[in-house]
Simulated scan of single mutants.
Amino acid sequence: MCRWLAYSGTPVLLDTILYKPAHSLIDQSLHARMGVETTNGDGFGIGWYTQTSGIDTPAVMRDVGPAWNNRNLREIAQHVTSPLFFAHIRASTGTAVQQTNCHPFRHGRWLWMHNGSIAGFHEMRRELCVAVEPSLFPGMEGTTDSEVMFYLALTLGLEEDPPGAVARMVGLVERTGRAHGVENPMQMTVAVTDGESLWAFRYASGGGARSLYYSTRVDSLRALHPDVSFLQELSDETRLVVSEPLGDLPGAWNEVPEHSYGVVRPGDDHLRPFVPAA
């Protein structure tokens, strides 16, 4: 499968999160502890928002090589500061290793990334693609189940109601899968953002969803670890959502419950149950 992280909070250099932690996402590209594969070398991508006036869409950089030795990624990470960014390292589940299949995917202000798979996707791919709104369909460039999930969610109201749209998307995939004889088609952790709020989902049709964690409130971490200087530089609103913890700092990480989703936004973080729509 894949590994990913989503950051929201005090603007930081991407390098601070992508490279410096003991078990950073770059380290996970070679030494993942909780993924299906130890190595995630089938491409990578980053998407980030800037505070530049007049720029409404996030920047995206994707490549097909492994993240651990990409000089362009290292260069960007050492010079780009962002208050909200996504990063993803890919382990293909059968679709081609090409730039258009690397995450995150972008539509307007929106970014989307996924870890997991749709079981039986190749058999139901045409049916799912036909369900995408015709005006959105030209935006799909790749061949992954992840991108189809994104465009189905957009079709089903993502821009107005992200949790509801993802629930409707999963419900559609499950109904389609079962019509094709696949009892438990959906396996996912998903992150999606409009540049202001961040939603993260953990769900699997038959249980056993892929790992997902969120960081403890920064003010609580400062109380636990007053000697950690990095925490002094972050606002109380800063949050990380990750496929697996970036380090072993006691009290820093909390597992997202299965069949739930979380919302990260200034002053209003919460976890709620996730139920696919009938």
Rank of each mutant, 00 (worst) to 15 (best):
P163E: 10
P226D: 04
L111H: 07
V264A: 13
G181A: 11
S211D: 10
M124K: 00
E133H: 13
Q187G: 07
P226L: 12
T176S: 05
W48M: 07
T95C: 03
D27L: 09
T57F: 06
L5D: 07
M124A: 05
A252V: 07
N184D: 14
A91T: 11
G108V: 00
S82W: 03
D63S: 12
F201Q: 01
V242I: 10
G171Q: 06
L231C: 00
L30K: 01
E123A: 11
T193W: 08
I118C: 01
N254Y: 13
A87N: 06
G45F: 03
H270L: 15
V263R: 15
A167R: 06
T57E: 15
E133D: 15
R239G: 01
A278V: 13
R126P: 00
Y49E: 06
S235P: 09
S146P: 10
L231R: 02
I17A: 07
C2F: 06
Y203V: 10
F137E: 14
S8W: 07
E123H: 05
P66S: 11
L246H: 03
L5G: 09
N184H: 08
A209Y: 03
N69F: 13
L84I: 06
A119C: 15
D227A: 15
H122G: 08
E141P: 05
R175F: 07
M186C: 15
E244Y: 10
R217H: 14
T38V: 15
T50Q: 10
P276D: 01
R168S: 12
S24Y: 08
R217L: 10
P58G: 02
T95M: 04
Q232F: 13
F86Q: 03
A32I: 05
M140H: 02
V192F: 00
S24A: 04
V64M: 11
H225D: 08
S211M: 05
R178G: 05
T50H: 08
D56P: 03
H270N: 10
T155D: 07
N101W: 01
G45R: 03
S197Q: 15
A165W: 00
E244N: 12
P273M: 00
S53R: 14
D161F: 12
Y7L: 06
S92P: 01
D227L: 14
V242N: 03
F274R: 00
G262S: 04
P162T: 09
G54K: 12
S82M: 11
G120Q: 01
T155C: 03
T10Y: 11
E258A: 11
M61Y: 15
L25M: 06
R109P: 05
R210H: 12
G164I: 04
E233K: 07
L221C: 02
V173I: 15
L221I: 05
V242A: 13
G108P: 06
I118K: 00
V97G: 07
E183L: 10
R106A: 13
